[in-house]
Design a protein around this nucleic acid. Sequence first.
DNA 1: ATAGTATTTAGAAATATTTCTAAATACTAC
DNA 2: GTAGTATTTAGAAATATTTCTAAATACTAT
Lengths: 87, 87
Amino acid sequence: MGFAETFKALSDGGRREILILLKQGRMSAGEIGSHFDMTGATISYHLNILKKADLVYEQKEKNFVYYELNTSVIEDVMLWLSDLKGA
Amino acid sequence: MGFAETFKALSDGGRREILILLKQGRMSAGEIGSHFDMTGATISYHLNILKKADLVYEQKEKNFVYYELNTSVIEDVMLWLSDLKGA
DNA sequence: ATAGTATTTAGAAATATTTCTAAATACTAC
DNA sequence: GTAGTATTTAGAAATATTTCTAAATACTAT
């Protein structure tokens, strides 16, 4: 999407923690949720925001949904910031 | 402050435009406002959010308030993103 | 001091975000 | 097919964000 979605997604501490968790590798929605004091519905809401921001992608397998970090957008954001900062 | 404030500040397109404008150098609140279709009050509101996020700092001179880009926090954000992206 | 310019503050309205509970969907395994 | 597990969707409540208008503050210059 655009930078608005990306920065908005990153503005929530819980969502940033989810991303940090996913540095370890892909993880099911349930396992992600087990790390937080939130309902599964709330976790699902946050995962959806991260997905729409292209910060994660999902893989459905059996009756699990796995989420994995998507680093391509992170690069784009770093480039934007680098340009803002200037030479 | 923290990353929440920074990312939240960056999540608004108008605020990002203000920052891009300030790449050219410091600019008074009024001149910043003249680039946007918003009231001065709204511009002031956004400048305050950018200031609280340490993305700009202000210098009062005569009856003008000048705003200038502060790049130190941008570096911090880039480091956080770089770590998230991993090696 | 008065008038004028620059900016911020206060208060209110519209919209967006975050979270929950309860229900729905999707799949597995017997 | 029934029961159970995993996840999402729907709807509602609480809070936060964005924007405006009008008023207040701060400073300049006559």
